[in-house]
Structure formats: C-alpha cells, structure tokens
Write a protein that binds this DNA or RNA. Structure first.
Length: 241
DNA sequence: TCGTTAATAT
DNA sequence: GATATTAACG
C-alpha cells in the first residue's frame, strides 16, 4: 500500500537540499592522532568511540561551506601556515603518518566541503592534492580525497547520462542505471547540491538542463506501467546540438 | 611524484 | 551491497 513516487521529477531539485537534519554524526572526526596515539585499548575493532563531550551541534547549522573548523584539531592546521620549517627532528612522534587510521566516514558535511572545494578549483584543477589542501581538513589524506573523487566523478557522469539520453550510441552502463534513477541513488552525493558547471565541463554557458520529464501517456490506466522502473526509457526528442 | 583506474577489504 | 582502502598503471 504504498504509492511509489511518480512525480519525483516535480520536486527533485527542491528535495535535494536537506534543511538541517543530518548532523547527529560526530563520530570518527576525532583527531586520528589522538585516537591512534592514545589508541584506545580496544584491540581490534575499529569503532572509534565518540567522546562524551559533544560540542553544540544542533545550533545553527549554516550550510556555509567555509566557516566552521572541524571539531577539534588545533594542531596541524595544514593549510595556513604552516610552518614551518623544519620539522627535522621530530621530537614528538607523528603517528598519523605511519599508523593506519580507522576508516574515513564521509559525512554530508564533509562531502559538502569537498564539493565546495572542487567547485572553487574547477573541474580541471580538481585534483586530489589540491582539493585536500583546500579542504584543510586535518587527518584527510590525499588517498581519501582521491578515492572519494573517483566516486564523485562517476556520480557526475551518471547525471550527464540521464540528462541527455540518446538512444543511439548509448551503451553506457550508467545510462542503464540512470534509467532507474531514484532519489535514493547515492545517498551522500545527493545530499550536496552539485554546481551546475559540474555536469558539463567545457560548457560555461549551460542553460538549465531540460529533463525530459516523461509526461506522456501513463495518465490513467490502472494496469500497465508500474512495471518497476528500468522499463524502456522515454523517447528522447531528437534534439540536435 | 602525482593522478587515475581497477581490485580488494570492511 | 555499499563504501573506503589498497594496489597497479600512466
């Protein structure tokens, strides 16, 4: 008894921007250094127990990208300044360089920062290292960004496939999957608004993309349809360039 | 060395 | 099965 959404396209865009309901996650953002340096005698089991101290989180969750620093990572400010020099003799050990960090959890907020960084850099300059530096998130490694960037690119490609779906010459698995695109695809990626120019690099003059909006038959007709998604893609108009 | 892709692990 | 990490390649 649940009507499947059939008009997602109506408010697809508006649904994306999540107001403020994703935040109850402050888990493994604790400085890996601390966690690892002191390392909780938890033996194996990467389950970074969130510290009891919880900073005010529900308050104003402005979506402002650059604004709030991470939770607590006074040291290692990376970007800024740096410093210095020298880090020759490492008096204090920096285990963060040799020990394996738990597992990076890309929270919507973190991803938002990621997207923002890529947007400011531009697709062409959006390389792991640059993104990582721009994000200025301590504990974030180039590997982390590279991995996430890989997935993010696939996501963008997927979006392109559905926006402009050509029946001919289209043999991309993405398109197939795209056909069954649901608002539930890519939880994380869908949480963050994707800059327009992201969809088509090299097209600064991108007007609002026109989703085909399958507003065709399928008006009344009790039977038929409902055949789960993935059916035949709507006849895309032959739009030429 | 860095960036990208595929494979692997959790 | 999804997501992040690790390895291999350019």
């Amino acid at each position: 008894m649940r009507e499947e959404d059939s008009n997602w396209f109506s408010k697809w865009e508006d649904e994306l921007p999540p107001p403020e309901d994703l935040m109850p996650l402050s888990q493994s953002l604790i400085t890996p250094d601390l966690a690892l340096a002191f390392n909780i005698p938890s033996a194996h089991h990467h389950t970074p127990p969130p510290p009891p101290s919880h900073p005010p989180q529900s308050t104003a969750l402005s979506s402002q990208p650059n604004s709030s620093a991470e939770f607590d990572s006074p040291e290692l400010s990376g970007a800024g300044g740096g410093g210095g020099g020298g880090s020759g003799a490492a008096g204090s050990d920096e285990p963060a360089r040799t020990l394996k960090r738990p597992r990076l959890v890309w929270t919507p907020q973190l991803h938002k920062r990621f997207v923002d960084a890529v947007a400011h850099l531009g697709i062409k300059n959006a390389v792991p290292k640059t993104i990582m530096q721009l994000m200025s998130v301590d504990g974030l490694t180039r590997e982390n960004v590279a991995s996430h960037l890989q997935k993010y690119r696939l996501y963008l490609k997927r979006m392109q496939g559905i926006s402009n779906n050509g029946g001919a010459g289209n043999n991309s698995p993405a398109a197939l999957s795209a056909s069954g695109m649901d608002p539930a695809t890519d939880h994380l990626f869908a949480s963050s608004p994707v800059p327009a120019h992201f969809l088509h690099p090299g097209r600064p003059n991108s007007e609002h993309f026109l989703p085909f909006v399958p507003v065709a038959a399928m008006q009344h007709h009790t039977d038929a349809v409902v055949g789960r998604a993935r059916a035949a893609p709507p006849p895309a108009a032959a739009a030429a360039v």
